[in-house]
């Protein structure tokens, strides 16, 4: 579950006021909004890269408002993946588990499992400069999911992909969500993407969240 309660964030020209939203356990929420409306900022609030001036952030059953990013157990996939340039795909998938000092055998098993799930097993020894846009997104998703986070945050993961790759990654996102049951908040510009993937729709306008009808008869 992701819950934001009465969040205030002031950053000079940009502000979020009394922002409230809730994504239930296992839900797949899509968040839409114009450029500069605060979609990425909202994701950064959830994963702890920004601190609100007021309000509470609840992840799972815990109040994480003042927790450091490392303690929040949030898988974050920023725009274009932001992969670590000096690490192979295998090292990226193992990164979060190595930080948590998991046993070597467990790390190897999890890396294989994630690579299998995301279809990147042949890429495990490649470095990011040699990857295509779709491969980069799969790697970034694998890295974010490797440590079994409670929630997954996706920042426009399908932007800048060609139609065929976009279609494949959309199917993959559905598959991953069904397979892992991870609560997901997915930021997108694309209506078709939102309707295909989301179990609930949200729209951010002038610093406030409103429900968005995805044409499935359900609302936020």
């Amino acid at each position: 579950m992701i819950e934001l309660e009465h969040i205030d964030l002031d950053q000079g020209a940009f502000a979020l006021r009394d922002l409230t939203l809730e994504v239930p356990e296992g839900g797949y929420a899509v968040l839409m909004g114009a450029s500069g409306s605060g979609k990425t900022t909202l994701l950064e609030l959830v994963c702890g890269l920004r601190q609100p001036q007021a309000g509470r952030i609840i992840i799972g059953d815990h109040d994480m408002t003042n927790a450091v990013p490392a303690a929040r157990e949030v898988g974050y996939v920023p725009q274009d993946g932001a992969l670590f340039k000096t690490m192979t795909v295998r090292e990226q998938l193992a990164f979060a588990l190595e930080i948590r000092r998991r046993p070597r055998a467990e790390i190897e098993a999890r890396v294989s499992e994630m690579a299998e799930l995301l279809g990147i097993t042949p890429l495990l020894d490649r470095l990011p400069p040699g990857l295509s846009g779709g491969e980069r997104q799969r790697t970034a998703m694998g890295r974010a999911l490797s440590f079994r986070p409670k929630v997954l945050l996706l920042d426009e993961p399908l932007t800048a992909l060609d139609d065929e790759t976009r279609e494949r990654i959309m199917q993959l996102l559905q598959h991953v969500q069904q397979h892992t049951g991870v609560t997901t908040l997915h930021v997108t510009h694309n209506r078709q993407e939102a309707e295909a993937l989301g179990t609930m729709g949200l729209k951010i306008t002038q610093g406030r969240i409103e429900p968005l009808d995805l044409g499935k008869g359900d609302h936020a």
Partner: peptide
């Protein structure tokens, strides 16, 4: 952003600096 992502993956700022 790579260092920020590393922090969401479980790193302290020091670990993100040295590892990434």
């Amino acid at each position: 952003r790579c260092a920020l992502v590393a922090q969401t993956l479980g790193c302290s700022r020091r670990q993100a600096f040295f590892r990434v």
